[in-house]
């Protein structure tokens, strides 16, 4: 969709509401860069990193520089990292927080990134960088897949409708996939070209994965539900 990836030496942003897939995009970008052998860092405003999911996304955790910066320190931390030079990607995960930052701060960050040739990738709930961003991608949740095992209280809006009445014990993972529509708000390609793009994020947790610790996962023992005790391996 982006026609070659995130622009080097520029500020890019991925935004969308909760469960739209912005964190998954961030993980995938970090994983791709780190697996290539380049350096990458993650500035996390909410300490929301899930190490297991990050590793499943291809991030070699030992090589990731993770900075849990509180409010008011995120941009400064990002600037420090970008200024150090040598980082191919510095990801700034703002999550749901909405920092009150002046436009000059984004301009300064863009200039530093341009000087160092670093990709600065911002993930947030809203578009924050405005015209300072070279690429702006808007994600919107499109479909959620619970697999075949989910109990629906109401008729779902998206996807899961055939098994709405099923009320069974789910195997991990409970959510198996999330699909999001992607629209390119700013970038080299036009919005029309990107209008039909979509991303599918698969949960890679699987029971019985090799090399992982096995344990007891008990089924629902509530009356009226399946009470069988099941034994699965639980991924770490």
């Amino acid at each position: 969709m982006l026609g070659g990836g995130w622009p080097r030496g520029g500020l890019s942003e991925v935004y969308g509401p909760r469960s739209s897939g912005r964190t998954s995009v961030l993980y995938a970008s970090l994983g791709a860069v780190l697996q290539k052998g380049a350096a990458a860092a993650l500035v996390d405003a909410e300490s929301a990193l899930d190490a297991r999911r990050a590793e499943q996304a291809g991030i070699p955790l030992r090589q990731l520089l993770w900075v849990c910066a509180g409010q008011g320190q995120t941009l400064k931390s990002t600037e420090l990292l970008v200024s150090a030079g040598g980082f191919e990607l510095v990801a700034l995960d703002l999550g749901d927080s909405v920092p009150h930052l002046p436009t000059t701060a984004w301009i300064r960050l863009r200039q530093v990134a341009q000087r160092q040739g670093t990709v600065v990738l911002l993930a947030a709930g809203f578009p924050l960088a405005g015209s300072c961003s070279a690429t702006s991608v808007h994600l919107q949740q499109k479909n959620v897949d619970f697999g075949r095992q989910a109990c629906a209280r109401f008729r779902p809006r998206f996807g899961v409708d055939d098994h709405a009445s099923a009320r069974v014990v789910a195997h991990p993972p409970l959510v198996t996939a999330l699909a999001s529509s992607v629209s390119l708000e700013r970038g080299r390609r036009t919005a029309e070209q990107a209008a039909h793009c979509s991303l599918v994020f698969q949960a890679r947790e699987r029971a019985g994965a090799s090399g992982q610790k096995s344990g007891h996962v008990l089924g629902d023992e509530a009356p009226g539900r399946q009470g069988a005790t099941r034994e699965h391996s639980r991924p770490m």
Partner: peptide, 8 residues
Amino acid sequence: HQAQATLG
């Protein structure tokens, strides 16, 4: 126009 990644 569909791509896949790991769900975070």
